[in-house]
Simulated scan of single mutants.
Amino acid sequence: MTSVLESRPAGHRRRVKTADGIELEVREWGDPNGPELLLVTGVAQSYLSFVKQYSAPEMQKFRIISFDPRGHGLSDKPFGDQWYQDGKRWSGEVQSVMDAMELHKPILAGWSLGGRIVRQYLVDYGDTQLSGVGFLSCRPVEVPEVIGPGNAVVQKLDIDDLGSRIDITSAFLRNCFGLQPDADEFAFALGYNMVCPFEIRQQIGKWWTEPAISEAALRRVTVPTLIVHGRDDILVLPDAAVITARLIPHATLSLYDGCGHSVFFEAAERFNAELRDFVKDCSDPAAALATAKRRTMAAAS
C-alpha cells in the first residue's frame, strides 16, 4: 500500500516576496478554479504538515495553498528579533500571498502559530477579504493559562549542541501528537522541523500580543468560523478553543476525543470531511449560522 508520503504531490511552486523583502516558499494544489483554502502552519513546521489535506483525492476539488512562514522550510530565514516580533510582518505575509496568488475571498485557516498569524491578520486587515476563518489547535488569545505542560521540553532551546537540539525537537514533535505518527511519518516531520533554526524559534517565542487586542479582533469577525481542537492537546489546552468560541458566538466548535495538537493529521478523515462541509457553509453564510446553532445545541444536550 502506498503511503501518503510516497504519493504526495509536489504542487505548483511559487516564490512570493513580502512587503519587508522576505521571500516565501508557496505551494498550490487542486483545482485552480475551486474554492480557495489558504492554510498556515505552526512553529518549526512547513506546508508539508498539511500532506493529508493536499494529497487527499476528495480535497482536489479545492484550490489549496500553503506556505512556509518566514524562518521556516524553504522561506528566507533572517536573524533578529525585529523580523519576528512585529505582528504586522506576520499578517503582511498572509496578505502578500493572497495578492501574489490572486486569491478571491479564501478561507484562511491556521494551526498553532498559524492560528496566531490568522488572528494577527484579523487585527490588521479584518475579515472583509475572506469567506471564512479556521482556528486549528491554537490560542488566538495569548493568555498563559491555556499553555499546556508539553511546552516544557522547549525550555532548553538555547543549548549550543546539535545532538541536544535534535533531542529537543524530537520531544517537542512527539508532543504535537496524541495519536503518534508511524516511524516514516515522524522522520519526515523531524526533517522539516530541524530546518527552522533554534535562534529563530527563540525570536518567535518573544512575540506576544495583548489579549485585549486579540479579543477585540475576534469579536469583529462576521464570516463563518471553524474552531477545531484535540481534547488531549498538551501544547495548547482545549480551553483556548473555548475562549475563541465565546468571542465568536457564531463559530462552529469541534473538539476531537483522543487527539492531540495535530487533529488534521491524527484524524484526517474526520477533519477533511468537516473542512469540506465548512467550505459549503462559507458559500452560504446563513446556512453556516444554522449549522453552528445546531451543533451548539447538540453539544449542550
Rank of each mutant, 00 (worst) to 15 (best):
C176E: 08
P69T: 09
V154Y: 13
A100H: 12
N272Q: 09
A152H: 15
L108S: 08
I168Q: 04
E274L: 07
A240E: 04
R165E: 07
S49N: 11
E269H: 15
S131M: 10
H229T: 08
F135H: 06
I243W: 04
N175G: 01
W90A: 02
D160A: 15
D99A: 11
S7A: 14
V97K: 09
E6N: 12
D233M: 01
D124G: 07
F188Y: 15
Q82Y: 13
K61W: 12
R116C: 03
A298H: 14
N33C: 08
A10I: 00
L5Q: 13
H250L: 01
A56L: 03
G11H: 06
A100L: 09
Q85A: 02
R231M: 11
I159F: 13
L190M: 12
R70Y: 02
F186M: 11
G80I: 03
E23T: 15
F264P: 06
L122I: 11
A287E: 07
A245K: 10
R165K: 12
I64E: 00
R8C: 08
Y121M: 04
A100M: 11
V221N: 04
A56Q: 02
G42C: 06
L275N: 00
K61M: 10
I65K: 00
E199G: 07
V242Y: 14
T252Y: 02
T41N: 06
T222S: 09
Y192C: 09
A212P: 12
G260T: 03
S164C: 06
W208Q: 14
T291Q: 14
D232R: 08
G191L: 09
I234G: 11
F265W: 11
E269R: 15
S112W: 02
L218K: 06
V123F: 03
G87H: 01
K206E: 07
I159A: 15
V141N: 10
T225C: 11
G71N: 07
V141I: 15
A240D: 05
T296W: 12
S96Q: 12
A290E: 13
E102N: 15
S55G: 09
A300F: 05
D284G: 08
S112I: 01
S46P: 14
R165W: 02
